[in-house]
């Protein structure tokens, strides 16, 4: 038997917020689903039709071994295979900054899904700004742990940048949440000026 995985207790905070945005009994695709932590939670607690895509084979194997429908695939390449409106929600959690063409990925997400949920680290957080302004260095800390020469994160953006992209793409922001360094939800919405300075991570629910 596969060991039952404790999920709800220690689900990553941004994943909890994403889970709360999803209606029960819907069709969900999680791009970059890792070992399927969020999908397993959604399948169990929201009874969704859960599908996943993950680049690393280790992640895929773990997810499939826990009974999830997950394929090995690349957000930049493999979303084109899905038909229009195949899903109610398409999730991209902390993966946007690692894609080659973030705009095309968001476009594809909203083609194949009625909603897109995107979470990403905010590069305009004050600590990042301080690192650049005072130390003149790219930030390396517990939130952004990679040195510039080995980071998988090739397309960092700020919350304001992302809001701008949504405007340019004529995408509706249906909800937005920003999180502080402790992972607590901040009182202002993520598309506010304060969030861009104080938010460590942001989660956006997008519609067409």
């Amino acid at each position: 038997m596969i060991a039952p995985t404790p999920i709800s207790a220690n689900l990553r905070i941004d994943l909890k917020i994403i889970a709360e945005m999803i209606d029960p009994h819907t069709r969900v695709l999680d791009i970059g689903c890792g070992d399927g932590e969020l999908l397993a939670y959604l399948q169990q607690h929201r009874e969704v039709d859960a599908r996943g895509m993950e680049l690393s084979m280790q992640g895929v194997q773990k997810a499939v071994a826990r009974g999830l429908a997950v394929i090995q695939g690349d957000a930049d390449i493999d979303l084109v295979d899905y038909p229009d409106d195949a899903f109610d929600y398409v999730i991209l959690s902390k993966t946007l900054q690692a894609t080659h063409n973030p705009r095309a990925v968001v476009e594809q997400m909203l083609r194949i899904g009625r909603h897109a949920i995107v979470s990403f680290p905010n590069f305009a957080h004050w600590r990042t700004r301080l690192d650049l302004a005072l130390r003149g260095r790219m930030p390396v800390n517990e939130l952004l742990p990679y040195s510039w020469y080995e980071t998988p994160n090739i397309h960092f953006c700020t919350i304001r940048d992302f809001v701008d992209l949504c405007r340019t793409m004529d995408v509706r922001i249906k909800a937005s949440v920003s999180l502080d360094a402790d992972g607590d939800v901040q009182r202002f919405t993520a598309d506010s000026r304060w969030a861009n300075l104080l938010g460590v991570d942001a989660v956006f629910l997008l519609g067409k």
Partner: peptide, 18 residues
């Protein structure tokens, strides 16, 4: 096969074993 199943919105898992 996986691409075709995705295009048909079928439920599919895919693992390439090392």
């Amino acid at each position: 096969i996986v691409r075709a199943l995705n295009a048909a919105a079928a439920s599919v898992s895919f693992v390439e074993v090392h």
